[in-house]
């Protein structure tokens, strides 16, 4: 297997007024190409920080983040933008589609920034929309679609650029359980097609759909392994004491 994401002693500090908040505390983890990994944790556990770092929206304060062998922490803003564009496909809780543009135009955005010529861009965007079953809605505005459809459109947008990693941040958080399951099974399909999927969630039942769970608490990795093992859903307390959730 080929290592795609590697965290070596990654730390992230934020200054909140006088205090320094430790959002990531010496995190070590590796994710292989083709894996479906869920990063789970309560709010404040550091999962958002992890997602920002994995997504190249932020860089570690300390430690090394290697993305496909490249040390991301040392790159300029311009290079980071290029990496986000080529290596990462984002799926957000709030879909984050551009409201004034059609679904097709939304899916085209990453391709546009990648400099894909218009014709090919259109073709690849339509392909991605077909993949999520929205090809017939390509002219609609996001506001004309249901939440589930909007999230599918954002999955299409993430897929259109053929990135190395699909990074989904609470993709079902704004959806009812039924549509949530649909979106989740779509992510599983995306994974089965050979994509690396990293799912960030606070919800154990959703995290269980992944192949592997990385559980974070207070900026530290407290579990990394099989989602169906009993420890995977156990809440850890600082000091190493364990209690059933």
């Amino acid at each position: 297997m080929e290592t795609l994401i590697e965290f070596r002693q990654v730390c992230k500090y934020y200054r909140m007024g006088e205090e320094t908040v430790v959002a990531a505390d010496h995190i070590d983890m590796t994710i292989q190409r083709g894996e479906f990994v869920a990063i789970v944790g309560q709010s404040g556990s550091g999962k958002s920080t992890c997602m920002n770092i994995i997504g190249c929206l932020d860089v570690p304060s300390e430690g090394v983040y290697l993305l496909d062998g490249q040390n991301v922490g040392q790159l300029s803003a311009k290079k980071l933008a290029a990496i986000r564009n080529k290596m990462l496909g984002f799926i957000f809780q709030q879909y984050n589609l551009l409201p004034k543009q059609s679904i097709l135009e939304n899916v085209e955005v990453p391709l546009m920034y990648a400099g894909v010529p218009r014709g090919e861009r259109r073709r690849r965007a339509m392909e991605a929309l077909e993949q999520v079953g929205l090809a017939d809605k390509y002219r609609h505005r996001p506001s004309q679609l249901s939440g589930g459809q909007q999230q599918r459109a954002s999955i299409a947008r993430a897929l259109a650029g053929r990135p190395a990693i699909i990074l989904a941040d609470e993709p079902t958080g704004a959806l009812d359980s039924h549509t949530g399951r649909e979106v989740l099974s779509m992510l599983q399909d995306v994974h089965r097609q050979g994509n690396t999927v990293v799912l960030i969630t606070h919800d154990n039942s959703i995290a269980c759909q992944a192949q592997r769970i990385i559980r974070l608490e207070d900026g530290r990795v407290v579990y990394d392994g099989d989602p169906h093992a009993p420890q995977a859903v156990v809440r850890h307390r600082p000091g190493g004491e364990e209690a059933a959730q």
Partner: peptide
Amino acid sequence: GIRKALGAREG
């Protein structure tokens, strides 16, 4: 923010 996440450079 969306545009930057999707890879738009500052320029």
